[in-house]
Lab assay of single mutants.
Amino acid sequence: MDVCVRLALWLLWGLLLHQGQSLSHSHSEKATGTSSGANSEESTAAEFCRIDKPLCHSEDEKLSFEAVRNIHKLMDDDANGDVDVEESDEFLREDLNYHDPTVKHSTFHGEDKLISVEDLWKAWKSSEVYNWTVDEVVQWLITYVELPQYEETFRKLQLSGHAMPRLAVTNTTMTGTVLKMTDRSHRQKLQLKALDTVLFGPPLLTRHNHLKDFMLVVSIVIGVGGCWFAYIQNRYSKEHMKKMMKDLEGLHRAEQSLHDLQERLHKAQEEHRTVEVEKVHLEKKLRDEINLAKQEAQRLKELREGTENERSRQKYAEEELEQVREALRKAEKELESHSSWYAPEALQKWLQLTHEVEVQYYNIKKQNAEKQLLVAKEGAEKIKKKRNTLFGTFHVAHSSSLDDVDHKILTAKQALSEVTAALRERLHRWQQIEILCGFQIVNNPGIHSLVAALNIDPSWMGSTRPNPAHFIMTDDVDDMDEEIVSPLSMQSPSLQSSVRQRLTEPQHGLGS
Rank of each mutant, 00 (worst) to 15 (best):
L74I: 05
N80Y: 08
D89F: 03
N80S: 03
A79T: 05
D82S: 12
F65M: 14
S64D: 13
E86F: 11
L63K: 04
E90L: 00
D82Q: 12
E86C: 10
D95K: 05
D82A: 14
E86V: 05
V83E: 14
V68D: 02
E86A: 02
N80P: 09
D76A: 03
R93W: 08
I71H: 09
Y98K: 13
A67F: 12
E66D: 05
G81N: 13
H72L: 04
I71D: 12
D78H: 09
H72R: 08
S88N: 12
L74N: 08
L74M: 03
D76Y: 05
L74Q: 00
E66A: 01
N80G: 10
N80H: 12
D89T: 05
A67K: 01
H72V: 06
D89N: 02
F91K: 06
K73S: 06
I71E: 03
R93I: 11
D76F: 11
D76M: 15
D78R: 15
E86Y: 05
A79R: 04
E86W: 07
I71W: 12
L74A: 05
M75I: 04
I71F: 10
H72T: 10
K73P: 10
N80A: 10
S88D: 11
L63V: 00
F91I: 06
A67R: 03
E87F: 10
D95V: 03
G81I: 13
E86K: 02
L96F: 05
S64R: 01
D95Q: 02
V85Y: 12
N97G: 02
D95S: 05
L63Q: 11
N70K: 06
L74F: 13
H72E: 04
D84H: 11
D95G: 04
N70D: 00
F65S: 07
E94P: 08
V85M: 15
E90Q: 01
D89Y: 03
I71P: 11
G81M: 13
L96N: 06
D82I: 11
A67G: 05
K73C: 03
D84G: 08
E90P: 08
E66F: 07
S64Y: 15
V83Y: 14
L74S: 04
G81V: 09
M75N: 09
H72W: 13
F65V: 07
F65K: 06
H72A: 09
D89R: 06
K73M: 06
D77G: 05
V68L: 08
D89K: 01
V68I: 10
D89H: 03
G81Q: 12
D89S: 03
Y98M: 00
N80Q: 11
E87N: 05
E86H: 10
L96A: 09
L96W: 05
A67L: 02
L63T: 07
R69L: 12
D78E: 07
D82C: 14
D95C: 06
E66I: 14
D76K: 12
N97M: 08
D78W: 15
E86S: 12
L74R: 04
D78V: 06
S88I: 06
G81A: 09
D95T: 12
D76V: 10
I71S: 01
R69E: 08
D89Q: 01
V83R: 12
I71A: 08
Y98P: 13
N97H: 02
D76R: 15
N80F: 11
A67H: 06
L63M: 01
V85G: 06
Y98E: 02
N80R: 11
R69K: 01
L96V: 03
V68H: 15
D78Q: 14
E66L: 04
L92Q: 09
A67P: 05
D82G: 04
D76G: 11
L74D: 00
L74E: 04
